[in-house]
Write a protein that binds this DNA or RNA. Structure first.
Lengths: 164, 164
DNA sequence: CCACGTTATATAACGCGTTATATTAATCGG
DNA sequence: CCGATTAATATAACGCGTTATATAACGTGG
């Protein structure tokens, strides 16, 4: 079995490595959500959660809140609107601004997620992260090892039932 | 200024967040490399570095070593070959295997990178990471704050000259 | 009051990862 | 020794981020 070069290069490949671990975590999160019949991609929930938390937001405000660029928000919001979870209406006063709000289905989806799905995901991620200690690189090492030993969806399954 | 929802959601958005930080780190690394006239994308160097380290590798071996999927390697290797840094020749014996080796230019690029570029990048990343302490989430918080205060390329500029 | 700069959003093209599937070479069992 | 299975790579299509640029609405100064 060949060595993991990205891990071996350490600080030099930190960006590549964070992305790689992030993709892994997100893919495993996705598997948990599919098992819970969540209809969206894992990365789409933060947009809905932001609106749920502070009320209708513009495209630009969402970009800031989510930490991604404006074209990314425009596209993601388009998909969520098409799927029926978001509506847009032009701001009265400033017609440039499109204010995005949750539809009934959007609100229902968030309610269900908060109730049944997010606690499970958070417990699984917490479960894999909490034993970690030491420096960031050490912790990422340990995180990857821990994920290899037991992926999140397996941990989620093990934790089911003992959640509130 | 709206709150950062991905940060606020904590463990629930760990995957999204690691990807986001990884993209940021890689983009800043890219800026350092451009300033040093490095001809490639930051993410392409691990492939070359792997071959430099252990000699010519097959597509499958590279996928394992890099921790990405085989189609990703096929494409990246195609681009690097087109750019003149890699050559492929069929394995004598097993004609299915394409063994990838560095060209003269590839070797020269790696030599220059090892000499002038990688130490600078590693110093910059180490500079931003070493002050971090505490749990993984805390460390990622601090990492993002530290990057916001001074991006890697600025740190690299400050560190230039005092590198070996 | 309107031409011009600014702001908000949209569109286009690309980077780099993924999954699913096709293609070709090797191997194995009857 | 040939047909079926397995293994290695390639191709296609998509996800989700980016940068660069276009469009449309707002505000302002000559």
């Amino acid at each position: 079995m060949p060595e993991d070069i990205v891990r071996a290069l350490g600080y030099l490949c930190l960006g590549t490595r964070l992305r790689r671990i992030g993709e892994q975590v997100q893919a495993e999160t996705q598997r948990i959500m599919e098992r819970m019949d969540a209809p969206l991609q894992a990365g789409q929930y933060p947009l809905l959660a932001a609106i749920d938390r502070v009320g209708p937001l513009s495209v630009g405000e969402l970009a800031e809140t989510l930490g991604i660029t404006q074209p990314g928000v425009t596209r993601m919001a388009g998909l969520l609107a098409e799927a029926g979870y978001l509506t847009a209406r032009k701001e009265t006063g400033d017609q440039r601004i499109r204010r995005l709000a949750l539809t009934e289905e959007g609100q229902a989806l968030i309610a269900r997620s908060k109730q049944d799905i997010w606690p499970l995901i958070e417990a699984a991620v917490r479960n894999v992260c909490e034993p970690l200690g030491g420096s960031l690189i050490d912790q990422l090492d340990q995180l990857e090892d821990a994920l290899a030993e037991a992926p999140l969806d397996r941990r989620a399954r093990a934790l089911e039932g003992q959640q509130p």
